[in-house]
Computed example of a mutant assay.
Amino acid sequence: MATIFDKIIAGEIPCAKVYEDDHFLAFLDVRPVNTGHTLVIPKQPQSYIFDLDNNTYTNLMALTKKIACHLKEKLDCKRVCMTVIGWEVPHVHVHLIPTNEIKELPLNGPNVKQATIEELSKVAEKLQGL
């Protein structure tokens, strides 16, 4: 089933384009956290960012950096924050959110908790051996 991003890529749904080439598209989010909130997507559908081939992943990150620097300059913000969540639409997309302070980001919601060092140590032990 085609996702909303597939339909945007195909031109079936309009978008406010920030950038486009043969492999990637960047456009303004219709539900922006802040003005200039941009999504950067590969045109080739893939639902999970870490399933991208290395070349596509590297090119996506390089383009994301280029667009973030452009947003920062044009929108005169202090930072452009990046997030990849991966659940909203099953098509890889990077969120670039222009910000001037941390309180503009939803990092203190009801699902965020303070972990103890013991909890963190147990998880860190499980993750050893990379």
Rank of each mutant, 00 (worst) to 15 (best):
G11T: 09
C15H: 15
K122N: 14
M1P: 11
L130R: 11
K43E: 09
I67Q: 04
F27A: 06
W87P: 00
I41Y: 03
Q114W: 01
K74F: 01
P98K: 10
C81K: 07
P98R: 09
K7Y: 00
K74W: 00
K103H: 13
V112L: 02
I8F: 03
N34P: 01
V40C: 08
L39R: 06
R31N: 15
L25F: 01
C69M: 14
A10C: 02
D21A: 07
L120V: 12
V94K: 03
K113W: 06
I13N: 05
A62W: 01
I13M: 02
D6W: 00
N55H: 11
R79D: 08
E88W: 00
V80G: 04
L96V: 04
H93V: 04
M1V: 03
E88Q: 14
A124L: 11
A124F: 10
I13C: 04
Y57M: 11
D22K: 14
N55Y: 01
E73A: 13
K65H: 14
K7E: 13
V30K: 13
P98Q: 05
V30L: 13
E118Y: 08
E73K: 14
D53Y: 05
A68D: 05
Y19H: 11
T116S: 15
K17V: 07
I4H: 02
D53V: 05
E119N: 07
L25T: 03
N108A: 12
K126G: 00
C15M: 02
K72G: 02
E88G: 14
C69S: 11
A115D: 09
T99Q: 02
Q44R: 15
I49W: 13
H93T: 05
